[in-house]
């Protein structure tokens, strides 16, 4: 087995184009167009690009939330791209996702206990109710929220607190890899700093691996060991943060760098 937790080769996700009036097939939309990268265990790989560059689709394809057109996704040597949804279930436990919008990714009618319990019921069916409650309380504490909040509903929390709940839900099943899709871009800068610190602390404590997707190079530089720059479905440049910052090769990377405010 290699040192890489995740290996993606020649990954493509194409969506069919809309047929025109004469029923002629239009060109497919190439959301992701033949990309390859690796994610080493315990590290953070940053994936940066503008909206529409295909970065979110890449993250979603890994957890089967987007259909694979071509390419191979292997997790610890096992090809997971070819698995059926049912056969993929054990890997859903290992690969979790955190979403951008903390307002839309939590069910508004469920309390925090049921939000955190749901993944446990699916992946740990043998767990008793009391064990589950205890685990949920522990999860809340691990994201620095008081365990008393279990009976509250999502609307009672601020954006930053909701994102913490999203992180707790991802942690519930003890994953190895977390795909963070723009986890801080909807948050105030002050709250952003807290959530970024929390993600880094958890990585240290639990030995997590992150694929960190964002459009802000300053944040990506801060958290990543390796950075992938994506544009129009392709990876146009990759390297360590120092390489990308110190010596960007592509015009697109330079544009992204220029867009970050400096002061």
């Amino acid at each position: 087995m290699s040192d890489y937790l995740l290996e993606v080769s020649d990954l493509s996700v194409h969506y069919p184009g809309r047929a025109n009036w004469f029923f002629q097939k239009a060109e497919p939309k190439k959301a992701v167009d033949g990309i390859s990268f690796v994610v080493p265990k315990g590290k953070t790989v940053g994936l940066v690009g503008e909206s529409g560059s295909g970065k979110t689709t890449t993250g979603r394809a890994i957890v089967k939330l987007a259909p694979l057109t071509a390419g191979k996704i292997s997790y610890q040597g096992q090809d997971i791209g070819v698995l059926s949804n049912a056969a993929f279930l054990p890997w859903r436990k290992k690969i979790q996702m955190i979403f951008q919008d903390p307002y839309n990714s939590l069910n508004p009618r469920a309390d925090i206990l049921s939000i955190l319990s749901e993944p446990l019921e699916i992946h740990f069916p043998q767990m008793t109710r009391t064990d589950r409650e205890a685990r949920c309380a522990e999860l809340l504490r691990s994201v620095q929220l008081p365990a008393e909040h279990l009976r509250r509903h999502p609307h009672e929390f601020s954006g930053g607190q909701r994102q913490r709940i999203g992180i707790a839900r991802a942690l519930a099943v003890q994953p190895e890899l977390i795909i963070c899709d723009e986890p801080v871009s909807a948050l105030d800068v002050s709250v952003q700093a807290e959530v970024v610190n929390l993600l880094q602390d958890l990585q240290e404590q639990l030995g997590l691996t992150y694929l960190f997707i964002a459009h802000d190079l300053a944040v990506v530089e801060h958290v990543s060991d390796h950075i992938l720059v994506m544009s129009k479905g392709k990876i146009v440049e990759q390297g360590t943060p120092a390489e990308i910052l110190g010596n960007p090769q592509q015009a697109y990377t330079k544009t992204l760098l220029a867009a970050v405010p400096r002061f």
Binding site: S190, A193, A218, E221, H222, P241, L245, R262
Partner: peptide
């Protein structure tokens, strides 16, 4: 609290 390019810190 704002992350800045080229000034990697351990924590924000």
């Amino acid at each position: 609290c704002i992350p800045r390019l080229g000034q990697r810190r351990r924590r924000l």
